[in-house]
């Protein structure tokens, strides 16, 4: 994987883009030759990738220890399920609605707790998932169906086509994932993304440089929840049933592990880690009992071997002369090196 970095950073940019293009092309045609079992695995990976990438904004880029991300996934899924089964609103229309509701939930939760120090936030978010699952299991307001959850959610309809086959879901989920990756890459480089990174590196310094850390943290938290809520809608639409079993603390911990194992803050790393972890889990689901034993040991081993994650984020590169154009005399000739690596960010 280090070789991959070198490919990109030095001569062979073309080879790098060819590789990425190849992967995308392979994904685009793989429903043609994969059977349902493997498509199901890929769909799982896709859904988890969307979730893990949204958690990555909070945990990886901002450095907020959120171990309760599935709470917002659950809010999204249940919103879609309730509104679809009770009011017959087409499920894909509910994407923004459930996203917004998850965001509102995140806002309400984050408001009081966002200033807590790292570990405390971790515990509060764990408590949050537990409380939410208990609430949903207790059939609150008679809407959530108790421990059985909600059945009979409609299949999504996109451009007049009813989506119900595994390969159709594959395109829906991976299309959504594609949008997520592009958007989040842009976000990472934006002013917003840079501010988040600054908060992660040194909160006091960030505050001192005029970044309102609390409000940026809130924004990151809320935005990630919004995205998780939308992923929840996709999940509800795919499964046609939701219950709290899919949103337990164990799932949250898994997402947390994916982000850290992948390399906190690195989109490529998180994608790779999701592929490896969820892929392994699905691939070895026959060996049910031993699977998780190996899985736990592998988590420890991976951390011991690469504590910084599989593909940690690279130092960001910024074009220096863009910021130096106002200076009366360039500090160095513009034809020389014009980028500078900012270490550690």
């Amino acid at each position: 994987m280090i070789a991959l970095d070198q490919l990109k950073s030095t001569r062979n940019r073309k080879a790098y883009f060819a590789l990425i293009g190849g992967i995308i092309a392979l994904l685009a045609v793989c429903p043609l030759f994969l059977n349902n079992y493997w498509l199901l695995a890929l769909n799982n990976i896709g859904l988890y990738s969307i979730l893990a990438l949204s958690l990555n904004i909070v945990l990886g880029q901002t450095g907020l220890f959120n171990m309760g991300h599935t709470a917002f996934y659950a809010v999204g899924a249940y919103t879609a399920a309730i509104l679809n089964t009770n009011l017959d609103i087409p499920v894909l229309w509910l994407l923004p609605v459930s996203g917004l509701l998850a965001a509102v939930a995140a806002l309400l939760v984050a408001w009081p707790v966002i200033r807590l120090r790292g570990d405390y936030l971790l515990i509060v978010t764990i408590a949050l998932v537990e409380i939410l699952c208990i609430t949903l299991d207790n059939d609150i307001f008679g809407l959530t169906g108790g421990t059985n959850g909600i059945y009979g959610i409609d299949r999504p309809i996109l451009f007049g086509i009813k989506i119900y086959k595994e390969w159709q879901f594959f395109y829906l989920i991976w299309g959504f994932l594609g949008i997520t990756v592009i958007l989040f890459s842009l976000l990472e480089k934006s002013r917003f993304g840079r501010a988040l990174n600054y908060i992660k590196q040194d909160e006091t310094a960030a505050e001192g440089s005029g970044i309102s850390t609390a409000s940026y943290k809130m924004m990151a938290f809320t935005f990630a929840a919004f995205w998780a809520g939308m992923a929840g809608t996709l999940f509800a639409a795919k499964m046609t049933t939701v219950s709290t079993g899919s949103f337990t603390f164990a799932e949250s911990a898994m997402l947390f592990a994916i982000v850290i194992l992948g390399g906190a803050g690195s989109i490529r790393g998180v994608l790779l880690a999701t592929f490896v972890l969820i892929g392994l889990q699905t691939a070895f689901s026959d060996l049910k009992s031993f699977r998780l034993l190996v899985f736990g040991a592998a988590m420890v081993m991976m951390m011991l071997l690469r504590p910084q994650g599989i593909l940690p984020p690279k130092p960001h590169r910024y074009k220096v002369d863009r910021y130096m154009s106002d200076l009366p005399e360039p500090a160095f000739s513009p034809k020389e090196q014009t980028t500078r690596e900012v270490k550690g960010i």
Binding site: A257, I260, G296, M303
Partner: peptide
Amino acid sequence: LAAVVSALG
């Protein structure tokens, strides 16, 4: 965080 993930594992 590496230790946290190791602990979870």
